[in-house]
Every structure is written in structure tokens, then in C-alpha cells.
Write a protein that binds this DNA or RNA. Sequence first.
DNA 1: ATCGGGATTGCCT
DNA 2: GGCAATCCCGATG
Length: 304
Amino acid sequence: MMLRGKRKMLALTTLAAAPEQAVNKHENRTDLTLKVSPAKLKKCENAQSAETEQSNYLTKSDLQHKLAEDFFNQSCISLAKAFLGKVLVRRCADGTELRGRIVETEAYLGGEDKASHSAGGKRTERNTAMFMKPGTIYVYTIYGIYLCMNVSSEGEGAAVLLRSLEPLQGQPVMRQLRAARRKEGARQLKDKELCNGPSKLCQALNIPRCFDRRDLASDPEVWLEKDPHTNPVEPHDIVSAPRIGIESHGEWAKKPWRFYLHGHPCVSVVNKEAERQSLSGNVMNNLGPSDVQSDTGQHNVKRT
DNA sequence: ATCGGGATTGCCT
DNA sequence: GGCAATCCCGATG
């Protein structure tokens, strides 16, 4: 099976330069403590349009592979699966581009889904982005200190949480951004540890709180691409498991709306029971758990 | 004005 | 694998 082939990834491992300006610790801290005030959001929007006007930030290749707004216009669960294998791109202020392949997501429906911030159709200042057009980014603060990034889908108040990425480009910058919030002198993070969690990926890609309500289909600083270097994700590559961290929500906690690429080392939490169930009925491939390498570059990647 | 809980992480044992 | 850190958000009075 091609996706799990053990071939080295070559094309996308070329690293962007890692200038110090890309790691703006002060800006990062400020964003994390930002209050949700319309004024601050407005300021952010202005900065965005200013950059839009003056830059020619997309290469020909980017334009070719960038996902347009119609991609996001599908049901929440469908979109959560469709995100797997796609590449999240973050263009930093200095032009550095950070890239990571999405390997884990969760679907949060509106209305009936008690675990969703938009449960019962409840609309608040915080979750407004969930009700905006499909492709709108929803960033919120969790536990007072971390951020989570979601993308709204079709469906009233529905959104997909991005949980984990496989770092593809800009790992040194990601490592600096992550290290900035860790104990001084702590060991260096491995590549697969840079983005293996919802708040980790926000740190590693420098996704600030003020990206809330931006449009992933048109924003110059963050967008989604198809990855021309890998085969499409097939249904049997996807594990469906209960969502993480919502145990208090009764029967809704059991819905298997977390999706991840089977065997991928960057998945934040592996659920072996769910893997048995998700993969039963599939033709078992010839790679067992012992074939999973620690090098993220060897997974779910086809060289073109 | 106050209070309770949270779609997590990192460090320690 | 346990648990503290840390503070915003939304509900309530």
C-alpha cells in the first residue's frame, strides 16, 4: 500500500531559512493573552488587508495546489476526513513558509452535539466563527494558556478541530517557536513532537488568537494546499475514534468523530480499540505496528 | 462581581 | 500515568 510505503520523502524536506525575526516571542505571548475585544480583532483585520494589497505572496505552485472555498463547503464529518493528508501553510511576516500535513482532526457539530462550543445553536462572542461561512478559522483559548485552531464547515455552528500535523517545512522555526514556551535547557524536540497536539500546532505554526474569523480560502498568511507529493488518503487509511478530552458529555463523548491516519507517528493519541474496529473489514496490509518508524519522513508519503 | 469548568501540555514519579 | 499550571469564557445573581 503506497501510503504506508517506506520511501524517504525528499521534495518537501528542503527547509526554509530560519531567520530570527520569524520567532517573535513577544508577539506570541501578547496574542496568547489577548482579550476578545472587537477592537483588537479589527486591528488584526487591518493588518491583514494591508499585507494583501502589497504582496505577491503565492508562487505559481501555491496557486495550483491551494484549496478554494468550495472545498470547505461539505458536512463537518466529511470535511474532518477530507482534511487528512492536506497541507496547512503558514506564511510568516518575514516570508518564511511553514508547512505541515494534517494527520488528525475532530468534528464538532452544532445543535445536538453537546460537546461542541455551539451546542444547542448557542452563539457567543467566542464561538462566532463557527457560524460563519465554511472555511472560516475559529481560534479559541483553552485552559487559559493554550490555543486551538478549528475550521468551520457546512452546517449551522459546525467546525473541525485540527489536532496534529506532520511537519514538512520550516521545522527549525517550529522548534524555536515551541521551545520558547518550554523550560530553558530542555531537550530538543523531535520533529514528530513539534505539532502532535492541537495547541502544539498553533505554537509551531505561530497561529495567534487574532486569526479567529479569518478565511482559510483567501487569507494571505494561512491557507490549505493539496499535497502533490503523496497519494490521496483512502478511507481505509483513516481511523475513527471517540474525541479527546470531552468525557463529561455523556453519549456525545462516545461518537467516533476523531479521525487520524493509521500508523502515522505524529498522531497525538493512538486508540488501539478504535483501530481494531475501524480497520476490521479492510484488507490488512503487510505492515504491522513494528514497522512504524520514529522518522516522520517515512510515513504516508509517496515520492513523485 | 463572582464562580466553575475547560476540544491541553509538560514535567515529575 | 498522574497532576499542576493558568485564566478566559459564559452563566448566574
